[in-house]
Amino acid sequence: MLDTFFNIAIMRAAWPILLAGLGNTLLLSATVVPLGLLGGLVLALLARSRSRWVRWPLMAWVDFFRAFPPLVLLIFLYAGLPFAGIELGGFGCVAIAFFLNTGAYYGEILRAGIDSVPTGQSEAARSTGLTRGQTMAFVVLPQAVRNVLPDLMSNTLEVVKLTALGSVVAMPELLFQARQAQSLTYNPTPIVAAAIIYFALLWPLVRLLSRLENRALRTG
């Protein structure tokens, strides 16, 4: 049993391969999270538009990408677009697919956050002479972000976990590398090792989140 799932020799041999994969996982996360946040912020701000010609398409956009499994989006970009002569490469496909997916989620979260700030706050800010942009940036957004911080963090956790889908389109991130090592050694140890790395990487965030969520419901 130990020899099958925790084979030390294989773990040692697979280590450099896994480490390279971890690097790519982190790089991918560091690309998608800021992009997604930025996209989400744009969506959340546009959602406040008074024109329904802006709001309705926006809602459709968000619902579309929330309904669409990210893997399907990824496969579409990776296997579908080349037929139209567009080759994005593994990293590009993964980054774009997850940006579209997670941007919609971040957008919904930030919108809820902005809604949670009382209107009196922006009225007060405007009456002291701040412009609309200043009010949003310095008064509303900081409070909004604080109110939905657990959700933002939870979504960030999901993004890092999402990067494992990159393995499906041969993007050499952690899971892909582990599967390569597994098929070379005929032993599941590398996958177990990858799971341990994911756990070690994300456990602190999971713990923190679980505390924040409990507190939010209790005082909510």
Binding site: L157, K161, L162, T163, A164, L165, S167, V168, L175, I191, A194, A195, Y198, F199, L201, L202, W203, L205, V206, R207, S210
Partner: peptide, 10 residues
């Protein structure tokens, strides 16, 4: 915690 930290695909 383990199940929340691991990607489902893993």
């Amino acid at each position: 915690d383990v199940l929340r930290a691991l990607p489902p695909l893993v």
